[in-house]
């Protein structure tokens, strides 16, 4: 019995040490990105959460909020290849995943891999490309493999897609269908920086500024940190809380006052992602266990694109984020 206790204590101590190590690396990573991007800490944390939880992130924000800069900086501090794909109405799936080309010298067709074969992909303005291109990318995101001709190619690991879309200028766009939105682990809403941060931006970028960022996180580190995340414990009551939050968003469950504002609730995928993201958030807080605070902290980003507001909600100008807030302020925490 005492031997078992000491083993448990040792494992707990090891986990604590691993958490501290991982936290330090992540802090280092944030600091490096912070050299190029001022503020937007939530956005950076959101991207790191996406990478560590093994998901992809959708970013929504008006132009000029350092979305591209942040992802480029992230690719620099991570030892990872980076591709930026500007989605346009004339983009074809082959432009994304690659195509078979004929080599005259050898007289055979060879596969030319597209920009999707990178560790980090920035799918800029994803809603400007037609549905077939969106589908090609979303399939790659889901399967983590691409078939060109008759050959299937594995995508590199880590594989992280960050798609952006502009909440304004909706004319001529192809909004992502709900089923495809559901594949993004998080939807981050990027807001304007604070006045202080903007002043800092002005002072730093007022002159030509191109900071050199060091690579501080390697593929092996990411794998190791993912391993640490897996070891973070989630109590049964927290698991139930996650499921309760997700099921409360659905109309067919226990009737709640805010259900009239919800057209469709979140899918079971939301529960999985909420669980994973809460664990990553616990790591960010250097904790070996998940608290309700972690779940609440990630819930808006995980749920906001999975809850479809009803006509009544729209008429009362309630966004899906407001609905998530309602959800969080109603479901009792364990």
């Amino acid at each position: 019995m005492s031997e078992q206790n000491s083993k448990t204590k040792d494992a707990s101590r090891d986990l604590d040490r691993a958490i501290i190590r991982a936290s330090k690396r992540l802090d280092l990573c944030r600091d490096e990105i912070g050299k190029a991007v001022i503020g937007q800490r939530e956005m950076i944390n959101g991207r790191l959460t996406g990478i560590l939880a093994g998901g992809h992130v959708l970013l929504e924000g008006v132009p000029g909020l350092a979305k591209t800069l942040a992802i480029r900086s992230l690719s620099q501090v991570l030892d990872a290849s980076f591709s930026r794909i500007q989605f346009t109405p004339d983009l074809l799936p082959a432009d994304l995943v690659g195509t078979m080309i004929y080599r005259q010298q050898t007289g055979e067709f060879i596969a030319r891999k597209g920009p999707v074969f990178s560790n980090i992909i920035l799918a800029d303005e994803i809603n400007r490309a037609p549905a077939k291109v969106q589908s090609a990318l979303l399939e790659a995101m889901q399967e983590r493999q691409v078939t060109i001709g008759e050959t299937t190619f594995e995508l590199p690991n880590p594989f992280f897609v960050m798609a952006t879309q502009n909440p304004i200028e909706q004319e001529g766009t192809y909004p992502l269908p709900e089923a495809q939105l559901d594949r993004f682990i998080m939807k981050l809403a990027i807001t304007y920086p604070s006045a202080g941060e903007e002043l800092d931006i002005l002072r730093r970028v007022g002159i030509e500024y191109d900071p050199k960022l060091d690579t501080v996180l390697f593929a092996a580190d990411i794998q190791e940190i993912r391993g640490v995340v897996e070891k973070i414990s989630v109590d049964e009551r927290i698991e139930k809380y996650i499921v309760e939050l997700v099921t409360a968003s659905r109309k067919h469950g226990e009737p709640r006052s805010f259900h009239r504002y919800i057209e469709f609730g979140a899918s079971p995928r939301a529960s999985i992602y909420l669980y994973r993201c809460a664990k990553v958030h616990a790591l960010f807080e250097s904790r070996g266990h998940v608290l309700p605070d972690d779940v609440k902290a990630v819930a808006p980003a995980v749920l906001r694109h999975r809850i479809i507001p009803s006509y009544e909600a729209e008429s009362e100008q309630l966004s899906s984020t407001d609905l998530v807030d309602l959800l969080l302020s109603t479901v009792p925490v364990p």
Binding site: N45, T49, K296, A301
Partner: peptide
């Protein structure tokens, strides 16, 4: 306010 504030990812 409807509830206390918690720092949220991507809030």
């Amino acid at each position: 306010g409807p509830r206390g504030q918690v720092s949220r990812v991507g809030a």
